[in-house]
Design a protein around this nucleic acid. Structure first.
Lengths: 240, 240
DNA sequence: CGATACCTTGACCACTTTCAACGTCCGTGG
DNA sequence: CCACGGACGTTGAAAGTGGTCAAGGTATCG
């Protein structure tokens, strides 16, 4: 890991405090976290961690979007996770990652040195409980994505992806003025997330536009004109 | 959950003791587990848990194979996990499952009542550590499967599946005499695991047979004549 | 011995990928 | 300021992989 070190902001003023791994920590515990944390920033496209690399740090995403990806020998890649602000990198008891972590946009991480963090973990049930909760949420998300990758059509995959963006649109960086949403990924990255090619992604987005379900302001920002129609396409349980 | 209750065997004689959730428990902790455990058995094809159902029990698989599956409204299903002997059902702090659990063969479970189990969990770090470890292993497995579902060809999927059977062949129930392996699932179940149709599974197995990589004794049991050739087909990192 | 569930194989079809060309946006340097 | 170049995105046509539909085969259990 090789990145700019920034000046920290106080935990009390942190925009992701309410959802991040530290959300249940107060007082003395928070003081310790405050002491061992370091902000680091990465430019869009920079590799944050390489598969198999030892992790000296665990971290929360403060700003920006990062991707977790796996690659076959011949270069085919599949994204296995998307890290938005407040999401966490690092697992209790594991010192290396099994995938590449890449900054999809400019990213700021709140990094904790591994050793002190694990020490705190062993004496702070709130922290370790939260971490287990986060891991289980990721497991649920991974399994939902398995259903998408294994059984959904290109159309359903795109609709599901955008539906997920709507659900997570409260996090910073996914919204533009006038209720517009922002695609946090390029067409190629979306393709790698959905198990498609970038051409298919582009065609399906064009199709949703042609059907009046989406309206694009520019290549990255758009408005969902008909959220219900979109949700119906996802193939997921209907809401009513 | 609705199943036969069997007479228990002693934890000390349990075939899955060394790998299961209880593997790190000794003495008094094991005595408590022994007291709250109940063996239940299910016939092949029986539903063990329904998606969304409240779980009164958590359990380890003692004998047999169970599947975790998700289903879209129109009936398409994707298997999101395979439970072999020693694998665990149930998550710390979660009282319902997000998928269906079905017995693929006759299954025996070692069930622990939820409440006493969670009480024990909160005072037995060995047990909760092991449970977190299990959840993280499942997360890794889920992500490997995402790569398979999103990016591998039918041929690679089948090869990867059989390669995995070889790796896990030490567990009871996957081997037949003379080094033969046993498919723990029907063609349709394999298809649901790999995001294929049963016809494609059948064709790919026939192709591997035609190439002299597999030899079938009957529909469920076969011998891998060329493990290296099989592994090369998986698309995973080569071993050397 | 027949019924049924499971599996195999073939022919055809559709969806997604592949390959290719063109378009658009944006930063850089003349 | 505009021209150029490169990254990114769109669209079209052709190809190919896996799906669908259909028929027949095989094992197993009454």
């Amino acid at each position: 890991m090789n990145a700019l070190v920034l000046s920290n902001i106080k935990c009390g003023e942190c925009p992701i405090r309410h959802r991040a791994v530290c959300s249940r920590c107060e007082g003395a515990d928070l003081d310790i976290l405050e002491k061992i944390k370091v902000y680091r920033s990465f430019k869009a496209g920079e590799q944050i961690l390489w598969r198999g690399e030892a992790m000296d740090f665990v971290a929360s995403v403060v700003h920006g979007v990062a991707t977790l990806g796996k690659t076959l020998e011949d270069g085919r890649t599949q994204m296995v996770g998307l890290l938005l602000p407040s999401d966490f990198i690092g697992r209790p008891g594991r010192d290396r990652v099994e995938f590449d972590v890449v900054a999809a946009s400019d990213v700021t991480l709140c990094c904790f040195e591994r050793k002190p963090f694990e020490n705190l973990l062993s004496v702070t049930p709130d922290l370790s409980k939260r971490l287990v909760e986060i891991a289980l949420d990721e497991l649920d998300a991974a399994r939902d994505w398995m259903l998408l990758l294994g059984r959904k059509t290109a159309r359903e995959k795109i609709a599901t992806f955008i539906d997920m963006l709507i659900r997570r649109s409260s996090v910073e960086g996914l919204t533009a003025p006038h209720d517009a949403l922002v695609l946090p990924l390029s067409r190629e990255e979306i393709a790698n997330y959905l198990g498609l090619t970038l051409e298919t992604v582009s065609r399906q987005l064009s199709a949703l536009k042609a059907q009046g379900i989406l309206r694009f302001n520019d290549r990255r920002s758009f408005t969902v004109l008909s959220p219900d129609a979109l949700h119906d396409i996802t193939g997921n349980d209907c809401l009513h």
